[in-house]
Design a protein around this nucleic acid. Structure first.
Lengths: 216, 216
DNA sequence: TAGATTGTTAATCGATTAACAATC
DNA sequence: TAGATTGTTAATCGATTAACAATC
């Protein structure tokens, strides 16, 4: 059932993965699937699948398995894809612009409503029909628009300041692309995308797997 | 000591974080730190820090703690930041270009040596002094250059094909930006950056934290 | 030396897996 | 009904935390 006790973050981080596999199954016109079949596809145990899903409800049926479409929808709901979080991007450098052009926000429950930067060369430029505004206008903007989430793609040394500002304006979610762990004295949900961490881990794993030292 | 037994991935994924905090300490001209002090800064237990580090060696000194600079260097070594992995980008769309412009590859042990795409409008364009080449030229390119790692930033429906191609050419590392779990019949290390998964988890956590339902 | 702090072993906690009664 | 497969409890495994002897 629903809110018995807190679902562990490990489980939550697997949800998008289930969602993707179910989406694939839908594409393949597969209407039902057992935890066993799904486990074979995903390379995890059937036990784990059943345990994970049962954190949120009994979506299956004994002797039958799970209806793909309905499970897909359930997980979508759990992930809040039907939400319409209003989102802004702060920092319209290469990464900020790439994210602005990212087309799947809507499908994930987000709507891009503003882009901010400090570079005069960028102000006024339109991406996805949204004009880049000066960072100075952020506070004014937030007064007139609901903003739920901010994407942080500013240079390293501005991150802390911008994050504090954003949080102080009451924005509740931060998608942080800076290689920095934010500590914020407000009640904010922070999701980090530490690209360079990921790259370093890749390096470690490569060295580990192919121990026979490369010539540098 | 070194290769007693396999270090768990959980530990490895914390290494870049240690590395960042040590880098900060260096900036602050702090020369020594105890696991206790570091634990306070990082918000993890001192036990965990000592356990983690001791997977790789005894870097500390009883009664003293750890020398910041030397620990920083040790972790850098473990993460292979002194490697010179040669890397290519496949898919020079918004994300691919943003990554090409990412400046910290060198510091992480990587060197960008090629960019490939299929869009005629992009071929010949230079980013960071590297000319975008047609994807058809990839095979030829790999014959003449060592390529250790490929960044995959191609559209969803091309991912599988490109990944197989890349792996068949003997490229050993994949940094995958597609929202897809790759299964490859070769010996390849894959590090996934599932941005949209991260965004969905952010949505979940926001809903969870601020249960008082938003008006959609 | 006395105090501090590590490296490491032991205890605890949480997450994953196995097992099986319930039931479609 | 018989077979299949869930939901859920119990067992196992691994990761985190605590404790402390070793030692700088």
């Amino acid at each position: 059932m629903n809110s018995k006790k807190k679902v562990s973050i490990a489980v939550v981080r697997r949800l998008p993965r289930y969602y993707r596999y179910l989406s694939d199954l839908l594409e393949l016109d597969i209407t039902r699937i057992s935890s066993k079949e799904l486990s074979a596809r995903m390379g995890i145990t059937a036990s784990q699948i059943r345990q994970d899903l049962n954190c949120f409800g009994g979506f299956g049926q004994q002797g039958y398995g799970y209806n793909v479409e309905s499970l897909f929808n359930e997980i979508g709901n759990i992930l809040g894809l039907n939400n319409k979080f209003q989102m802004i991007i702060i920092g319209a450098g290469h990464m900020g612009q790439a994210l602005a052009n990212y087309s799947n926000f809507e499908k994930r429950g987000y709507k891009l409503v503003g882009i901010f930067d400090v570079d005069p060369g960028l102000i006024g430029k339109k991406i996805k029909n949204i004009e880049i505004e000066h960072y100075d206008k952020l506070e004014e903007f937030v007064k007139h628009h609901r903003v739920d989430v901010a994407i942080l793609s500013v240079p390293y040394d501005r991150t802390r300041m911008v994050a504090d500002k954003v949080a102080s304006l009451g924005i509740k979610g931060l998608w942080n692309f800076s290689p920095m762990d934010l500590k914020i004295p407000y009640d904010v949900v922070i999701e980090n995308v530490h690209l360079s961490d990921s790259l370093m881990v890749l390096g470690y794993r490569l060295n580990e797997k192919f121990k026979c030292k490369k010539n540098k």
